[in-house]
């Protein structure tokens, strides 16, 4: 008996392989290419310390004499720097590898923070309803009426001014994650609340109450798993949004410091030199950013199509 149950339990991967999601993924070229692109960026940036020829965070490793060298293939290129160097003589390839990692990390952690706050509030709001619901949703409305960028600019500028640049350089990533995470939670809260309102009328929720489960168990074990598909879709979009927001903030000089640059700060950094002909400092990080965001969004689109049963017949 136990052997039989074990066998059934271990076949989760086989069950996934039979599932619609897997089937659709295998037969959708866009989804596969996007997933491959995202996976490529994630893996290379995780392996950046191994892959990168130089350490872009270590200022003793680069020489001002190497500054603004063009990428290999153009006049005056240096074989040591495949994608050229920036104004400080820093290797662009290494900097981009590390920078992509920082961007993705900010995107993922900010989304996790948004999801944690938003899902908890949305579940409570939708399940208990009444005044609590009205209050929480008005708070969400107020939060949404301040655009993320505005909130971020104010908080980051204040933070930068009060703690000083040195301290800021060390803790910028936490503050950025925090700000983007807090500014965007209503997206999750609203979606979850709408799903909960629909789910809680279903009989299985009554049945769970009749079984004698506590509201906590009903909310987390029964209702939450039923709201997971829209959440997956939003999550991909929100990761992309968070990366873009961070890039925009960096472009305004409020994101990651240039000593530990993200893709956004690299674009901003190179922008000063674009008219002097050093196009590569801006162009490569910008290209990576565009490709990464596009891939994530395409993946999100595919997921939305596949998880929405109303679109199956297409």
């Amino acid at each position: 008996m136990s052997a039989q149950t074990l066998e059934v339990r271990s076949s989760a991967w086989q069950r996934f392989r039979k599932s619609l999601v897997y089937h659709s993924f295998i037969h959708n070229r866009t989804a596969m290419v996007s997933a491959a692109v995202v996976a490529f960026f994630v893996i290379t940036s995780l392996l950046a310390p191994v892959l990168a020829p130089y350490d872009p965070w270590d200022q003793t490793q680069f020489d001002i004499m190497d500054s603004e060298l063009p990428p290999v293939g153009s006049n005056g290129a240096d074989q040591r720097f495949v994608l050229g160097t920036d104004a400080m003589g820093r290797d662009m390839l290494s900097t981009i590898l590390y920078g992509t990692g920082i961007s993705i990390m900010i995107g993922v952690f900010a989304t996790i923070l948004q999801a944690t706050i938003g899902i908890s509030i949305g579940l409570v709001s939708g399940y208990f309803g009444g005044r609590l619901d009205s209050f929480l949703m008005r708070v969400a409305d107020i939060q949404l009426s301040f655009t993320t960028l505005m909130v971020a600019i104010v908080i980051l500028a204040l933070f930068q001014a009060t703690v000083g640049l040195r301290f800021y350089e060390n803790y910028a990533i936490f503050v950025i994650v925090l700000v983007i995470g807090i500014a965007e939670w209503p997206q999750y809260a609203r979606t979850v609340r709408a799903c909960v309102l629909a789910e809680k009328k279903k009989e299985y929720v009554d049945a769970a109450r009749v079984i004698g489960l506590k509201p906590r168990a009903i909310i987390y074990r029964h209702i939450l798993p039923n709201t997971i598909s829209p959440l997956l879709v939003i999550s991909t979009v929100q990761v992309a949004n968070a990366i873009i927001t961070e890039a925009a903030l960096s472009f305004l000089g409020l994101g990651m410091p240039i000593t530990k640059p993200s893709l956004g700060s690299l674009i901003r950094n190179g922008f000063d030199y674009i008219f002097s002909g050093s196009w590569w400092i801006t162009a490569f990080p910008a290209l990576i950013l565009v490709v990464l965001i596009l891939a994530i969004n395409l993946l999100g689109d595919w997921m939305r199509d596949v998880l929405n049963p109303k679109l199956y017949d297409k």
Binding site: K202, Y204, D206, A207, I211, G212, P225, I228
Partner: peptide
């Protein structure tokens, strides 16, 4: 809560709806 589902159980009309699909 100690009584519901423990000493008194309930069976609903539509078994399609009373079991959690996920």
């Amino acid at each position: 809560r100690q009584i519901r589902g423990n000493r008194i159980s309930m069976i609903f009309q539509d078994p399609m709806m009373t079991l959690n699909p996920v």
